[in-house]
Simulated assay, not measured.
Amino acid sequence: MNSVLAVRRKSRRISLTALIDVVFILLMFFMLTSSFSRFGYFEFQTQGAGGGGTGDAQVLLLQADGELLDRSVSPAQVMSDERLLARMDASRPLSLLPAGDADVQTMVQAIERLNRIGLSRVTLGQVLSAEVD
């Protein structure tokens, strides 16, 4: 019985070569099958970056619910895409003044809407919450 206990098994080291090969093959597989798509983006400037204020710019107010209001018309009117194209000049800069409670997603959607209809010179301005009401 002592002879059975005396025989020790040699401890074998685990080879990591096969594991490294499998990980490399999986890495290559996922790199080759994934799609590298470019996310959509749009360009806009803040008032400070453009060098000028809203002096010669057309002004639109952006409400928290995403409606665009023409501040030059009294009382401010909600603008559809057709009215925006009819009233705004695409060659002049457009200053978008968001309401104080407008979130970032609402601003992004409004700028995308303006770009889609051809008003691409959009400047993001700042408005006081009392000025919107």
Rank of each mutant, 00 (worst) to 15 (best):
P98A: 02
L16W: 12
R116Q: 02
M88I: 03
D103Q: 09
L27F: 13
A76N: 07
V78Q: 01
R13M: 08
S11I: 08
V22E: 14
M79W: 12
Q105R: 05
L26G: 03
R12Y: 07
L119N: 05
P98R: 07
S72V: 03
A130G: 13
P75N: 05
V22Q: 15
S95V: 03
S15Y: 13
M107H: 10
Q63F: 03
M28S: 12
S15N: 12
A64C: 09
T17D: 11
V78E: 00
G53L: 08
T106S: 04
L94E: 01
A90F: 03
M28D: 05
L97G: 09
S74D: 13
S120T: 09
V73D: 13
G50D: 06
R113E: 00
L114A: 01
M31L: 14
K10D: 09
G50S: 10
L61R: 09
S3F: 11
T54A: 09
L94P: 05
D56M: 05
G55V: 06
M79D: 06
M88L: 08
R92I: 01
R13A: 09
E131I: 06
D101N: 06
A64I: 07
A86N: 07
R92A: 03
L61C: 07
Q47I: 01
Q45P: 00
V122N: 03
V104P: 04
Q47F: 01
V23L: 15
